[in-house]
Amino acid sequence: MSAVKRAAWEERPTVAGRASKGVAVVVIALLVLFPLYTIALTSLSSSDTVHRVGGLVVWPGDGITFDAYEQMFRNPVVLRSLAVSLGITAVGTAVSVVVSVLGAYSLSRPGSFGHRTILFSVLLMFVVFPGLIPVYLWVSAIGLRDNYLAIILPMAVSAFNVVVLRAFFMSIPQELFDSARIDGAGEFRVLWQIVAPLSKAVIAVVTLFYAVAYWNNWFNAFLYLDDTGKWPLALVLRTYVVESAPLPQAAGLSEAPPTLAVKMAIVMIAIVPALIIYPFVQKHFKKGVIIGAVKG
């Protein structure tokens, strides 16, 4: 997208117009950024400062300390939940991306054997849902309770992501496929050596969507993990921060509810992965990857 220049026919912007636009931009940006700023600052403040202020710290100047993070990482429950979340996100995203890219590629070649059936059973997922209770009964019945697979498998295929990938694959010029086939390349080779390299941007976006979904998911964990020792970070966040409950099994370490600084440190840990990956993928939004896909 090139820089937008004012066209010759367009009026000069009025002072009032520019001022109100400027105010709107600042207010909107602050609505998003200010909460994040004050939460980050509180997590970096000493418990004395937090106590004196009586809540979230807004003004820097009392110095920065990593006490809250140290305290958080000394807590085995938080530490383990962080590892669990990282593991679920890594494994789940890998499974989802591989399965979706393969499936979407298959769906992007119409006329092949079973194509209509496969396409139909994916597209129907947009309007027909199995419902909470039947899935719950089924996952319990096949013995996945207390198993991390109960979190990953039910959300491993997102119809939306498959359709996004498929739409992009279908926009690749047919000539590339034809010439590859004449050169004797099979489907797997075409996917790996031609389609995948051309689709890096859309695959990156889909990877982000899957990773975020796994990282943020807590309901599956809440439903299927009876053993609190297996909890992912999102459940810890809910119990520890939202409900302010003392953590289970935190043997001797935090019998009392956690201090505000530690709570905010947990919030930060839950946010940080998104903040790290986001800039790498965000530039692809602008290339219209998603919009192109939504267009079909």
Binding site: V98, V99, S100, L102, G103, Y105, S106, L107, R109, S112, F113, G114, H115, I118, S121, V122, M125, V128, F129, P130, G131, P134, V135, L137, W138, V139, L153, P154, A156, V157, V162, G186, E187, F188, L191
Partner: peptide, 21 residues
């Protein structure tokens, strides 16, 4: 090869969406 590629996806879609439905 195309059917094989779609197989893992179909397994998950049927196993965790349509069969529970």
């Amino acid at each position: 090869p195309l059917v094989l590629m779609a197989a893992p996806m179909m397994l998950l879609v049927w196993g965790f969406w349509w069969i529970p439905a």
